[in-house]
Write a protein that binds this DNA or RNA. Structure first.
Lengths: 206, 206
DNA sequence: TAGATTGTTAATCGATTAACAATC
DNA sequence: TAGATTGTTAATCGATTAACAATC
C-alpha cells in the first residue's frame, strides 16, 4: 500500500540498522553518521543513505543522525509499534522453543495459543495454552490472529498454512522446510534451516 | 578455492533445486526441463540454466535434465556427500530443538556434543552427550569439529564463536541474533529469527 | 567561518532476462 | 526429420557506488 515498492534487499537491512541503533542507545551514544553505520554493518555509506532516503530524510547535513530519533523512525517504519497476536501451529521442539522465546515482546508480537495434534502431551507451554488442532478453525474465526507461526512437519505445513490464510490470517512465519508463498493473499517469511545448513556446507568446502 | 566466485544469490538457489529434485524423485519423475524447474520455484528458465551452467552442463538439448543425475550433481556441488561433525554450543530451547532435529542426517551433519554452562540441568539430549562449557576448549582441540552451532545468548555468542574459530573450526552456524563474520578465517550462516520477524511485520503492514 | 555530512543525481556494476545457434 | 530444450552470448534491468551541491 502507498509509496514506491521497497526492494527485498532494503527491507532486509532495516532490522540491521535497528539492531545497531539499539546497541548505540545502550552505549549512550546519541549521534551517528552513515559512515559509522556502514562500517559497523559492512555496507557503504552511500548505501545506508540511499536506504534511509527511501523513507524520508532523517539526518542533518554536517551532523549525521540522532540515534534515538532514527531508531524511533525505523521502529515505526518496520511496524514494531503495533501489537500483533500470534499463534503457533505445531507444538514440537521448534514450536516449544518459539513459545518459550521471550524476545518477541520487543517486536510487540505475543503468542496467544499453540495448536498441536497431540494435545495430551503438553497441556501448557510456558503459560501459553495448548489446544487440539481440531480447534484451530474455530479459534482463528473467533480471535484476531495477525501472525500464524508454522512449525508442523513439512508434509502438513502447506495445508495448514493455506487453511489459516483462507480464514483471514495475513502473515505467515514458516519454519517448515518448504517455501510458502501466498501471492497477494498473505505475506510470508520462511526460516529454512535446512537450506541454511546446505549453504554453510557449500561455503565451507569452497 | 578454485573456479570463479559464485554469487550468494546462486548459492541460495542451489538448495531449492536440490529440494525440488528430491520431490520429483519421490514422485518417480525422472526427467525435468529448466522451464518446469523455473515454474515450480518461481524463477525464469534462463535463470535456472544460467545457475546450473556455473557448475557445468548437466542437461541434454531437446531433452532437459535427468532428475537423478542432476540431483546427484547438485548434492556433490553442495558438499552433502562429505560427513561433518557438529557441536552445539548452548543447551537452551533452541539448542535442544536442534539436537533433537533428525533432519541433519540427510545433509551428513552429525551432532556429536552439546555444551552448556549449566550441565546439571540436562545430562543428555536425545542421546547426545552434554558437557560443561569449561570442557569446550579441550573437546575442540581433541576432536575434529567441522561445524559449531551457536545457540547461546546474544551476549556470549560472539565470544564463544571467536573462541572456536581460533581453535580451528571452519564453519559457524549461528542462531544468536547478531551477525557473525569471520572473513577468511571461517564461513558463517546466520539464522536471525528476530530479523525475519521484523521483515514479516514490515511486509504485513505494507 | 570551515569542516562535516546529508540527500540526491549520475555512473558503474552485477544479476536477471531474452535470444538463438547447437544438437539431442 | 521436426520439435524441444540446452548452454551461452548479448541486452536489459535493477542495485550499488560515486560524486557533489546543499547546508547544518
Amino acid at each position: 500500500m502507498g509509496g514506491k515498492q521497497i526492494s527485498e534487499n532494503v527491507i532486509s537491512r532495516l532490522p540491521k540498522y535497528y539492531r545497531y541503533l539499539q546497541e548505540l542507545e545502550v552505549k549512550k551514544i546519541n549521534r551517528v553518521s552513515s559512515k559509522q553505520i556502514s562500517e559497523a554493518l559492512n555496507l557503504t555509506a552511500s548505501q545506508v543513505r540511499q536506504d534511509l532516503s527511501n523513507f524520508g530524510g532523517f539526518g542533518q547535513q554536517g551532523y549525521g543522525y540522532d540515534v534515538d530519533y532514527l531508531k524511533a523512525c525505523i521502529r515505526e517504519i518496520l511496524g514494531l509499534n503495533t501489537f500483533h497476536n500470534a499463534i503457533i501451529i505445531g507444538g514440537g521442539r521448534i514450536g516449544q522453543a518459539l513459545a518459550n522465546y521471550k524476545g518477541f515482546a520487543s517486536e510487540n508480537v505475543y503468542v496467544r495459543a499453540v495448536f498441536d495434534i497431540n494435545v495430551s502431551k503438553v497441556a501448557k507451554i510456558d503459560g501459553v495454552d495448548v489446544y487440539d488442532m481440531a480447534e484451530l478453525d474455530a479459534y482463528v474465526s473467533n480471535h484476531k490472529v495477525d501472525v500464524a507461526i508454522i512449525s508442523v512437519q513439512k508434509e502438513e505445513a502447506k495445508k495448514v498454512a493455506e487453511k489459516v490464510v483462507a480464514l483471514g490470517v495475513k502473515a505467515i512465519w514458516n519454519f517448515a522446510p518448504i517455501d510458502l508463498n501466498f501471492g497477494s493473499r498473505a505475506v510470508c517469511e520462511n526460516i529454512n534451516m535446512s537450506e541454511s545448513l546446505m549453504r554453510l556446507i557449500y561455503k565451507a568446502k569452497s
